[in-house]
Design a protein around this nucleic acid. Structure first.
Lengths: 348, 348
DNA sequence: GAAGGTCCCGAAAGCGCTTGCATGAAGCCC
DNA sequence: GGGCTTCATGCAAGCGCTTTCGGGACCTTC
């Protein structure tokens, strides 16, 4: 910068002002001259020095379970989309559900003085020994002025953006109910994840509202992966062959379960209707194309980034929860239950 | 830091040395005292100031097309895995195949003085107007001491890590040939991508080696997405219904093509054998489970990160190409061609 | 024509860390 | 006991930017 200043015949202060884009207090031709010299020299201002001086780092961090899961990929893209508009970069940290990796990341991000952190996954269960340590660290981050947003129910003191998982699950289940299914099984997610828990609750609620009390045998704990969906599906179909409908806690499970159904000689949808949550891109290309509740991952990411970058949001550090809308995407994996007359609702 | 120094009764220099982990020249109890005070104060050294002083930033950047594509997700995880071991963070930049986004990112990364950049996608075609600008920028990055690695054939002066796409494609095609298929179609990737180009070449080569000269009608330009696979598949099957085997330039295309085949009443594999490249996680759960050539994305990411972080690698800035091994994963989507006697090679 | 405004711009003091050099205290040998 | 090395530590000069403060130049205004 000194070099640029010298060649342009001005002071470093002026160069700084020009390059930082201060509109006022800069004579047009001074500006031109500076910009000219800077580009001739391929000058690239040192962002670190700038951050050090301004006490703000143009970086957002996305704390994800595993970036190779497209679910997180989509969220991250959303974050990046609005971060980019505001000249921020995004860092991705795979914590792999390991609390001490998480902790290490949080410390690293603090020392980097990032602008904000998006917690993309479900929180870890309350009673984990490292949890209090994490809470403490979150508080420290707050004290350092680092904004945080959670994308899942989190007991921490930070705002969160998400879909109402209970309602989304209930919508999926109602989709099956509306087609006359009453013996509906559920492949549930990892029990330690609140998201999975809420979807299970949504399933229960919807069934109860329909006057059905699902026996425990209809609910199979699985996980969130396709392999777990397959295994869970095998177990569930073996134990409760009477079910004609299946609600999986996410699309991966649903995909695995479809493979399991095939293995067990239950064709989908003829002998088993299936619906998932997430609406991952592959669904339309499966045979049958899978019905699902679409969750606006991209928008969620965008909203999260906005919440962090928007000036005015400062005051609302309270744990406000904002729900984003979701919708049912109907394809080919749900048909009327074999032994029922068509329920009128199916017409819509 | 001054605060810590004061409370520990030492100079800031000493605190710095302790926290930076300088083994020598520090009395054990001075160290203890400093660490003690630091942790009592929740002191977190300012990474920016440190980077400014040391002239190195502990950040790696992954320049990807789109992080929500699991292919890039896996690579990024690989990068992050080894970056993490060395206390580096990873930044992800979705350039979305837009050269000027790429350029903007490169500038930003330069001003951040990142340790290195991994170019994860294919390079853009040589003749794009912005290409020379990008080359220039790459050279500037070099001059700033920023290490770069490409994960695709790139004409730039940087080392690259990848699989031999020609050979991988040829392996896939041979898989079909070995099953007696001779009328093998190809759904090819975006023509501007070298990866796609090489796979097409691999297809041609393998066919030629088998003494077959595929007519142009067997080759359908598509893209790299499932939707393009579907549309391309529809076009190809309509135009060249005689084909009994299909090699898709990646798994997404293969998945789309399978849906298209279904639509056209061609059941896979009974009436059409299909093989892709990439071995994405969903394949085993498709019906039929799809055969594919597995590409070690995670390892590729790891190697790339190593290449950047390893000290000694400095001298080899030349454009050395390192190929990683790939392998054929056989599942259910390829069966012997209907009208041929079983070729002996199929036995293995 | 003096007082007051408005603009540009430069000087210089940080931002929070690292590190080369200097210093002084020990420890060692003959 | 003097000269030598070794070791732990401190001093202070950066690293490359931002920003406050104030000074000059120029223009208004009465």
């Amino acid at each position: 910068m000194a070099e640029v200043a010298r060649l342009a015949g001005v002071s470093p202060a002026t160069v700084s002002r020009v390059l930082a884009g201060h509109r006022r207090h800069i004579a047009p031709d001074t500006r031109r001259k500076v910009l000219d010299v800077a580009s001739r020299l391929d000058y690239s201002p040192n962002a670190l020095a700038r951050s050090l001086a301004t006490r703000k780092t143009p970086i957002l961090a996305a704390l994800v379970h595993d970036i190779s899961d497209p679910y997180f990929g989509e969220i991250t893209r959303g974050i990046e989309a609005v971060a980019g508009e505001r000249e921020h970069l995004v860092m991705v940290c795979n914590w792999l559900r390991s609390p001490d990796r998480l902790l290490r990341y949080l410390r690293q991000l603090r020392s980097m003085r990032v602008a904000g952190i998006v917690f993309c996954g479900s929180g870890i269960t309350e009673d984990h020994p490292l949890n209090t340590e994490i809470c403490l660290e979150v508080r420290r981050l707050h004290r350092y002025g680092i904004r945080m947003v959670a994308l899942a129910p989190q007991s921490q003191e930070m705002p969160s953006i998400m879909v109402d998982n209970r309602a989304a699950a209930a919508l999926a289940v109602r989709h099956l109910l509306d087609h006359g299914h009453s013996r509906i099984g559920h492949l549930s997610g990892p029990p330690m994840l609140l998201t999975a828990h809420h979807r299970l609750e949504g399933y229960r609620q919807a069934m109860r509202d329909a006057g059905i009390a699902p026996p425990d045998g209809w609910i199979e704990p699985a996980g969130f992966s396709m392999a777990e969906g397959f295994e869970g599906g095998m177990r569930l179909l073996a134990r409760a062959p009477e079910i004609t409908g299946l609600f999986a806690a996410n699309d991966q499970l649903a995909i695995g379960a479809m493979a399991a159904a095939d293995q067990m000689g239950r064709s989908v949808p003829a002998s088993l209707s299936v619906v998932g949550i997430g609406n991952v891109p592959v669904l339309p290309f499966l045979r049958p194309a899978l019905d699902s509740v679409a969750v606006p991952n991209h928008e969620i990411g965008q909203e999260a980034a906005r919440l962090i970058l928007e000036r005015r949001a400062a005051r609302s550090t309270a744990a406000a929860v904002r729900f984003l809308p979701f919708e049912l995407v109907v394809r080919q994996s749900v048909i009327p239950a074999p032994d029922t007359t068509l329920h009128p609702a199916v017409a819509r």
